[in-house]
Structures are given as C-alpha cells and as structure tokens.
C-alpha cells in the first residue's frame, strides 16, 4: 500500500506542475494592472512602476513563473502585496474555514446520498424510489447559488432561524453550528444528488448479480442481503465521493461569498478581482494538491475494500 501511495504521489507531480503553469498563464493574461488594483485610481505613474517592480511584474513571464516555482519548492508560497500578509497565512486561515464547511457538507451529502440511494435502489420502481429520484434530479438542476439566496431569504431574513453570514468561529465553537446550516444545505445538495444517483445505480446493478440469487436461495433475510449488496456496490460511490470531497474542499466561490464564509472560495474570488495573482496561484496549487491527495485516499480505500482492485493495482 505504501508503495502504491508513493507511486501515485510521484505521478502527481507533473500534474501539479501542469496545473500551476496553466493557472499562472491564465491569471497573467487577465486584463487589468495588478499595481493599479493595489493603488487605486489616483495612482501616479511612479508609484505604479515602483509597485510593479516590487511585485516582479516588470520581469518576463517565464522568469516570474520560475521564481515562483523556486519559492514553492522551498516551501514559500510568497507574500500578498494586496493583503500585506504571507500567502501561507491567508491560505491556512481560509483552508480551515473551508474545511469546516466541507466536512459538514461531505457528511451530509455523502452519508445522506448513500442512504437515499440505497433505499431507492432497494425499492426501485416504487413511489419511494420515484420521490428520491426527483430529489436527486432537483439537486442537480437547482443552481447552488440560487438555492443559497432562497435559503437566506426564508430562513435568515424572514424566519430568523439561522444567521445570514460568517462562520461563528470568531465567537465560539458552539456558534459555528447555527452558522453552518444554511451554507451546508446549499453546498451539499449537489453532492447529495450525485451520490444518491450513483448509489442507486450501483445498488440496482449489484442486485442483479448471481451472488444475490445465491444468498436468497440460501435463505438469508432481506437485511442481511442488503448489507452484502451495499458492501459490493460501494466502490463506484467511493470514486465519485472522492471527486465530490475534492470539490467541496476546493471551496465554493458562490456559496462562500453569499454567506460571507471566509474560505478558499471567497479568498480566490477576492484575489481575482483585486488581481492579487500570487494568492490565486497559491490557492490553486493547494486546491489541486487537495484533489490529488483525496483521490489517492479514495484509491487506497477502494483497494482496501476490494482485493480484486488491490491485486490489479499491484
């Protein structure tokens, strides 16, 4: 297993480098002058030149990228001239907030999706199955930002059941829970919907396997058969779960902005609008790394669960 993990991480290096090159190029071709964004519309030409020099913007693109990459390899994500803080500090703060929301969203979205998908699959063709399928389809169809605004209007503005902004973590750990409810619902709906549909499909396929007939012939009860079916159907669910967790950990710009949730999404949004390029680059690298690690964990989990996969990987 350790060998597999190391191999995967080594293979991820060129992927990460590729991601950084693409993002670097994209943010550096955005229209607008980063120095102007920092200084405002009264900036003098001398000030712009000075700031541009400080940021290294007067250097060739390739050289700037290599400088940045060199700093990354030495563990230095750089310094944000706009936020006047090390990028690592900004990311640490943002990642923590996104992690809190992502964990809650993943728990609800994945566990709820597996549960609903399992029920729908086991009761396929029934009214229960149809209702759950509609829920799943709705989750995929309703834009999360639209749902976020609707939840805000109903449950915050009108009913005042939940706060409209922030994490609550600056007040206390307990205050986190009411603050996370609405962004969690808005942010986990897609995960819930996808997981439900994948689980249902996998359950339906697994139930058509010969071994299920064997179990029934042997006289096992419905509950026992359900357990076996779920164990064998979980593999594709794990795969999509990995992607969903990676997506959640990357932070949702829209959800975080609407709910003033100071996570990676909001950090990147602010960085793009203020042309804080080094923050965009650093955040993208972190998100890409997150995807790589999460999917590696999923691969390892799958290999642990299913020896067929383990033998194939080895």
């Amino acid at each position: 297993m350790l060998r597999i993990a190391i191999q995967r991480l080594v293979m991820a290096i060129p992927i990460l480098i590729g991601v950084t090159v693409i993002v670097f190029l994209l943010v550096n071709v955005l229209p607008g002058d980063p120095a102007a964004a920092i200084l405002g519309d009264n900036a003098t030409p001398a000030a712009r030149v000075q700031i541009a020099h400080q940021l290294g913007l007067d250097q060739p693109l390739a050289l700037r990228y290599l400088h940045w990459l060199g700093h990354i390899l030495s563990g230095n994500l750089g310094y944000s001239p706009y936020r006047q803080r090390p990028v690592a500090d900004l990311l640490t703060q943002a990642v923590g907030n996104t992690l809190a929301l992502a964990t809650a969203s993943a728990l609800v979205g994945l566990l709820g999706g597996v549960l609903l998908g399992f029920i729908a699959g086991r009761r396929r063709g029934t009214l229960t199955d149809r209702v759950i399928s509609i829920v799943g389809l709705s989750g995929l169809s309703i834009p999360s930002f639209f749902l976020a605004v609707v939840l805000l209007m109903i449950f915050s503005a009108n009913l005042r059941w939940f706060p409209a902004a922030g994490t609550g973590l600056d007040v206390s750990f307990v205050a986190f829970f009411p603050h996370v409810v609405l962004p969690l619902i808005a942010g986990s709906l897609t995960t819930l919907a996808i997981t439900t549909r994948v689980t249902r499909a996998s359950i339906v396929e697994t139930e058509g396997s010969d071994f299920v007939l064997t179990l029934q012939a042997k006289g096992l009860g419905s509950t026992q058969i359900s357990r076996h079916v779920l164990k064998n159907a979980i593999s594709p669910v794990l795969t999509t779960s990995g992607l969903q967790v990676g997506y959640l950990l990357g932070g949702s710009i829209l959800i975080e902005t609407i709910f003033s949730w100071p996570g990676i999404g909001m950090l990147v949004y602010n960085a793009i609008t203020t042309r804080d390029l080094i923050v965009v680059q650093g955040a993208t690298l972190v998100v890409a790394l997150t995807f790589v690690v999460v999917n590696l964990i999923v691969d390892l989990l799958q290999a642990t669960i299913d020896p067929r996969l383990r033998r194939a990987v080895q």
């Binding site: 605004v149 209007m153 005042r160 409209a164 902004a165 922030g166 609407i258 003033s260």
Partner: peptide
Amino acid sequence: LYPQPVAASRVAMLQSNG
C-alpha cells in the same frame, strides 16, 4: 464591521438581525 459584496446577503443580514 462585516464585509459583504452581495446586496441580497446584506439585506438578509439586516433582516435576520445580524
């Protein structure tokens, strides 16, 4: 002071007594 660039969210913060 709280930052909130989305107008609808600012209104929600007000109406929710935030």
